[in-house]
Every structure is written in structure tokens, then in C-alpha cells.
Computed example of a mutant assay.
Amino acid sequence: MTAIQPTTPLSTATVLGEVADRRRQQDATFGEQNHPDGTGPDVELTGVLRRAADAAYTARFTTELARAEGRLTWLHILREEVYEALAEAAPAELRDELLDVAATAVVWIEAIDRRGAAS
């Protein structure tokens, strides 16, 4: 009996390949980059004029409100994920939130590609 292995949809694999290509371009342009995280609940976000923790809370609230009202957009979803990441100070939690940011960006790209295929 053969075990069924979960597979990555072709669209996801294609986008992840493009992300890998972009990463290679970044390395070629900038070399290896090692910067401080610069995150945490008390970090002030430029243009938002509030602490990251407050911005994350507001983003979660507006996303849930938009969902409840049937007007949810990718902007709501990605903004929430980004602000949640910016509010994290602990490396393990920050890493987890950044995975959410990356996954959300990939699924949004896939949605754009589906729209293009349907046009």
C-alpha cells in the first residue's frame, strides 16, 4: 500500500520559485544582509504614529470588522500579518509571524495570477 503524500499545488511551487529567484537577486545586489530586527510592541511605526502593538491590535480589529461586513480584502489580511510581525520582539515568535507574512504574500500572488488566467 502506498502512502498518499501531500503535494504543493503547482501555483504555489511556481510562486515560491519566483521568490527564490528574487532572493538570489537580492543577494547579488546587496550581498549577505544582517540587520537588527527593529521590532517589538513599543516600536513606533512611521506614518502610523502609534506603537506596533497598538497598530497590530487595530489591524486585527479592522480585518475582523471587514470580514464580518463582507468587505475583506488582501490589504486587510496582509496589513494585519505585517503589523503582528512588527509587534513581536521574541525571535521565535517574530519568525513565526514572518512566515505568516510570506505565506500571505504568496497566496495573494496566486490569487492575482488566477485573476490573470481568468481574464
Rank of each mutant, 00 (worst) to 15 (best):
D113P: 01
G38I: 10
E88R: 09
A3M: 04
T7D: 06
L86V: 04
E110P: 00
H76K: 01
L86W: 07
R50D: 06
L75I: 06
E110F: 04
E18V: 10
Y83A: 05
P41A: 06
E110I: 07
I112A: 09
G40T: 03
E81I: 00
A68I: 05
V43R: 01
R50K: 12
R67Y: 11
D21V: 08
R114Y: 08
E32G: 13
T12Y: 05
A92W: 04
P9V: 07
D42P: 03
P36F: 04
L99K: 09
R51K: 07
E88I: 04
L10T: 09
R115C: 08
T14L: 14
A111M: 04
A111C: 05
A59H: 00
R22G: 12
R67G: 08
D113W: 02
W74R: 10
S11H: 11
R114S: 10
R23L: 15
T58C: 06
A13V: 02
T39M: 09
T39I: 06
E88G: 03
T12H: 05
S119D: 14
V19S: 01
G31T: 02
T104W: 03
T46L: 14
V101E: 04
A89I: 03
S11C: 09
I112Q: 12
T46A: 15
E64G: 10
A103D: 13
E93M: 12
L49N: 14
Y83H: 09
G31R: 00
Q26L: 15
R114H: 12
T46S: 13
A85Q: 03
A111P: 03
P91H: 01
R95Q: 11
G47V: 02
L98Y: 09
V107M: 12
R95L: 13
T62E: 10
A3D: 09
D54P: 00
W74I: 06
H76Q: 01
D37A: 15
P41M: 02
V107A: 11
V15C: 08
E93H: 10
D100S: 09
A28F: 07
V48H: 00
P36G: 03
E69A: 14
N34W: 07
R67H: 15
Q5M: 11
A53W: 02
P9R: 09
T58F: 12
T12N: 05
R114L: 14
A66M: 05
V107W: 10
A56I: 01
T63Q: 13
A89N: 04
D21F: 13
R23W: 11
A20S: 14
V15A: 13
F30C: 08
S11E: 15
G17L: 05
L99C: 09
R60H: 11
R50P: 01
R79Q: 09
L45C: 03
T73N: 04
A85E: 02
T29Q: 13
A20M: 08
T2W: 06
T58P: 00
S11R: 13
I77H: 07
V19E: 01
